[in-house]
Design a binder for these strands. Sequence first.
RNA 1: UGGCCUAUGGUGUAAUUGGUAACACAGCUGAUUUUGGUUCAGUCGUUCAAGGUUCGAGUCCUUGUAGGCCAACCA
Length: 561
Amino acid sequence: MAEEVKSLNFIEHIIEEDLRNGFEKNNLRFRFPPEPNGYLHIGHASSICLNFGLGLDYQAPVNLRFDDTNPEKEEREFVEAIKRDVEWLGFEWDKECYASDYFQQLYDWAVELIKQGKAYVDSQDAASIAEQKGTPTRPGTNSPFRDRSVDENLDLFERMKNGEFQAGAHVLRAKIDMGHQNMLMRDPIMYRIMHKEHHRTGSDWCIYPMYDWTHGESDYLEQVSHSFCTLEFAMHRELYDWFLDQVYDPNKVRPKQREFARRNLSHTVVSKRKLLRLVQEGVVEAWDDPRMPTISGLRRRGYTPESIRNFANTIGIAKRENLIDVSLLEFCAREHLNKITPRVMGVLDPLKVVITNYPEGQTEQLQAENNPEEEELTFREVPFSRELYIEREDFREEANRKFFRLKLGGEVRLKNAYIIKAENVVKDDNGKILEVHCTYDPLSKSGSGTPESTRKVKGTLHWVSAAHAVKAEVRLYDRLFSVAEPEEDKEKDFMEFINPDSLEITTAYVEPSLAEAKPGDRYQFQRLGYFCADKSSTADQLVFNKTVGLRDSWAKIENKK
RNA sequence: UGGCCUAUGGUGUAAUUGGUAACACAGCUGAUUUUGGUUCAGUCGUUCAAGGUUCGAGUCCUUGUAGGCCAACCA
């Protein structure tokens, strides 16, 4: 047997090369660095799977680090939600870290930089600083405060820290080069004054470090070996390295930033600002609305962590732009759900069937297979009686040969039960079909072993016994946006592309075994799709969310017409 | 008028680092099936362009072209 060569993505290639060049495997360390200012979404899931996946592959620790340098936007609530989501995805972090834990060290280093003449206090307003920044094609100009003495800088910076100034009065800037090609190198701001309560440090600080100053140094303090971020930070790398140069001790691990393209999912939006609008404008119910691409939304929708991890692995990681079709996510959901979910029967749009030759008042319990994928099959009982519900779309008075379902004069198998034949219909004054009267073949009972029971009939329908069925609210979800790239059209607001039919609520009749469904329980409603009991579901009022439909080749045939 | 990044089937990602372009999804055929599900078999289709180096280029070089990113006291 030839040994299979595992193909590596470009990030794994980087690590492998570092290892080949003598980097100690034991020194490998990664991190996932969310800002606690919103909920994690499917894009983050990809990043989580990347970093924690590397940790697993290389048996290296992975830190969960909250990038909490901006108390204006960050809240403890998000910290908790993020931890819950990462855990739910199935990952364990080594250390729980906060950038705010490093505020003192960062401050001390900043003082050092001032002493070395590499940082200065600028006392201009934001507009002036922006103006002097220049443009990508025009160099910037020096601030009039650029050449303040070290002593004056030290004094001002300390007083900034002590809260002697109002927000905006001064900033601390690195002294690099206002003419640099890379605009981020044009004396970037390291600290700003903010009289804001921080979720962890309270009112200890009224100056807060900026991302660029914080992130690389945090990586360094944690001795993270590889710091992966999205492509828009590529230009930041130069600054990341510059800041590192100021504090780096060659005996320690020097973190390496590398960038990958963020993953885009079709038919959705993922920016925090836009997701927030969906919530605030009531398009969806909440951050965990099952239509949201948030991890909490996917969870409530019925996705499994395994399916999301598998999705992340399947789409891989690279540096080019991409738009991944949601159908791949749906495939991953089905693939896992098919293996693990018990099969049940539920009717979403009921049509009454009366079996005219079945004794009135009689009930029998039939054996139903729980999941054909199980290695050792298990069964449950479902009640059968004279009056049933089937799916309205499963019956037609007349239909061609391609329609395998019930039609007048035609036969069909009721799953786990009998073969029935449609004899006639009862309609109301408007011609709407109220009932279908059928006859059944008593010898055709599923699993009875009789010749009649093994007869081949083309169609098999799901059903419930009218008298025994339990009512349940079923929420049917469709994609939130009707176009693949709602953000693509710069003329139009993404809200214009909202699919008005993304949610349909129906009252379904489900088999009695479902009365025990607990929030989070997942099922396959046979012939329909996968469903998950909502967090609001109770024994008195069952609520199911549709995760995803089964593949539907009949719909394809129909749509061709 | 600048800089950085990217370009492989419809989509996403590989290609043992210069040696037969492959895997998954989607599509299409068919088989099996008490779910028009699952499973199985088959099929369609790919290296941005033009040059160059080489016995040999998706990979290296040059020049184009196209797309993305860069001027928050955000991350």
